[in-house]
Design a binder for these strands. Structure first.
Lengths: 146, 146
DNA sequence: CTCAGTGCAAAGGATTTGCATGCCG
DNA sequence: CGGCATGCAAATCCTTTGCACTGAG
């Protein structure tokens, strides 16, 4: 686990790269995401930082996403979910519960990474598609909903 | 490739299971999706069936999704995308172009399927998560946008 | 003093829904 | 005939945006 100050320093640097500052609100959003082991919805972020206005949260998430700090995930109908970029947290996949909508993180495994890389190489050769990264979701029922 | 009549028969059966009928509009939606080698947005479906009202298309897609005929895909901000259920078309993954938003189908490979199955088994053992299926997207740049 | 970030409230846009009509069984 | 799918238009709801204010440098 990366130390909290290191994380905020990195975030500040990436924001600075885009002529953006690390403000109180943005720090709050990042800390909320860093404290969670799963992607959070906007209401969840607001619940963790009740002082932050909804519109500011949305705006900050946009800025953080452009700075490469946050990643936005859209799965179903409800709210979008947000997590820290993978180079800050480590590469992982998601367990998506179709019953309650909850998403949990799942650390990546070597076997999958190798297979996916092979598939990506094949797609590149056959279709000229250049793969930047991948997303893998296991969809099913979580322990609570079973 | 499954014959067109077989497909519609199957669709009709699944709809009947939910006390729903295979109407002209629903047939049109299914044919539009079946004719494509990639998931379609609602505007694309409407373009293929100009006689169908937008609200009817949405309603039919909901019914078809509940009947297990159609699958809804949400990737980014724009429109959702729709494709036929995998048991009608075969299991596949997606190439997602971040530049133009286009999504192409990519046949599944044995290597990936084995690795994913292993990961699913691990998640089940460790977290009690029961995996029904999975989604794999390769995200990058398509040949046209390169 | 200046400018970016903030909060509030109003707007935007994909999707959903109410209601009257028409068609299929 | 009866009920369900359809069209149109109005409503929803997450998200974005306009605008005035405030705090940091």
């Amino acid at each position: 686990m990366r130390r909290a100050d290191d994380l905020l320093d990195t975030v500040a640097r990436r924001l600075a790269r885009q002529q953006q500052r690390l403000t109180t609100g943005r720090t709050g959003v990042v800390q909320a995401l860093a404290a969670s082991d799963r992607p959070l919805t906007l209401p969840e972020i607001l619940a963790a930082r009740p002082d932050l206005a909804q519109s500011s949260a949305y705006r900050n998430l946009v800025v953080l996403e452009q700075a490469g700090v946050v990643r936005r995930i859209v799965t179903g109908d409800e709210f979008a979910r947000y997590e820290l970029a993978e180079d800050l947290t480590g590469h992982h996949h998601h367990l998506v519960c179709t019953s309650c909508g909850r998403i949990e993180d799942l650390p990546a495994s070597d076997g999958i990474e190798r297979s996916v890389a092979a598939a990506a190489a094949l797609a590149a050769r056959r279709r000229g598609f250049r793969t930047a990264h991948h997303r893998l979701d296991l969809v099913g029922t979580c322990a609570d909903c079973a």
